[in-house]
Design a protein around this nucleic acid. Structure first.
Lengths: 189, 189
DNA sequence: CGGTCCATGAGACCAAGTCCCATCACTGGC
DNA sequence: GCCAGTGATGGGACTTGGTCTCATGGACCG
């Protein structure tokens, strides 16, 4: 008989997602989230810096992406490097078992301005960290920023597809497909 | 003798910027901002939906940019269209007399995560509205999104230059210069 | 059996944000 | 000149997010 149920952060996140779906973000209290997870407000704020953050994970994606960029083939161009990193990220993070959760989460994020705002910040930081990682590979600053902007777009397109796809398609092919589409649009635009 | 001093929102914004510079965003209370402007908390929240918003203006930039895109020469390519719109925006909004204020404001934004977060949301919405405006001109969705991403980068680069420039250079030339640089980087990346 | 560690609980406290009602100068009609 | 309506402001109660400090009690180790 254990005293504490395991994985308090995970239970809090699950409870929060449930409640946000049921009553909406602003009609859900932190205390209610904590209670549904069998915990208290104190414990909630010990695991998450604020209410919004309960639906985000602490920089793991950013870190993995930066690693992926660093360890891409040295002769790859900037945008291919980013695509490689996204592909690797998909293998370790956007696995089939996470797809349903990601879809529910994304729907909630889209529906609530406060959460969209947090997501916007994450995306900005992600783009900046991609550019920085490319720069560390020797890509000139502005080229790195261009590739990061386009890479972010590739990511958005692929992620939307991944969530929307009914048959559980893998993330990697979707990335490559999105990359090709963005390149075509770039050439034609 | 008038009862109310004019331009309450402006006075609140000025007071807020002063106080954020002096003591930092999180060490400044909404009540203190209101008092410095000779007003009260009630009035503050009547003019701004929340504390962060006091340093942002209500969608005027987004609106002007969308207009600029709609009224660009019909034969211009997507990215040129965006650059045109940025140029027009510079003439009506980023005027020389606003440069010092913009610089102070930007320094404060950069220094405080909560404000950076709001800025990130504004930027995301701006990019989305650019893409939408381009789409209304007949640009295919993905081409529009690519141009919006690159246009946002052009804007960032030009805006940094504009703020950093000591001799009060006009916004328009900085936009064209940034556009050329981004295009060169795109070709070389 | 006893001490230490660590995740949690409890509750006071402050500031952001909402809401409702009072106030008071200005305006226009009579 | 008086009176009613309008609109920006003030005041204060109230909820909730977020911080902080201290207490609790099981687990692990000797």
């Amino acid at each position: 008989m254990v005293r504490w149920q395991p994985d308090a952060p995970g239970r809090l996140a699950a409870a929060a997602l449930d409640l946000f779906e049921e009553r909406g973000y602003e009609n859900t209290t932190v205390i209610e989230i904590a209670e549904r997870a069998g915990l208290t407000k104190s414990t909630f704020f010990r695991h998450f810096p604020d209410k919004r953050e309960v639906l985000f994970d602490k920089g793991t994606v950013t870190g993995l992406l930066a690693e992926g960029i660093a360890s891409a083939p040295p002769d790859a161009g900037p945008l291919d490097t980013v695509a490689d990193a996204l592909d690797a990220l998909g293998r370790t993070f956007f696995t089939a078992d996470r797809r349903e959760f990601s879809g529910r989460r994304q729907a909630v994020l889209n529906a609530h301005p406060e959460l969209r705002e947090r997501e916007a910040l994450k995306r900005l930081d992600l783009t900046a960290s991609m550019a920085e990682a490319l720069h560390r590979r020797g890509v000139p600053t502005l080229n790195a920023r261009v590739a990061a902007q386009l890479g972010t777009l590739v990511w958005e397109v692929a992620y939307d597809q991944w969530i929307g796809t009914g048959n559980g398609e893998d993330f990697g092919p979707l990335v490559r497909q999105a990359l090709a589409a963005v390149r075509a649009a770039e050439a034609g635009g």
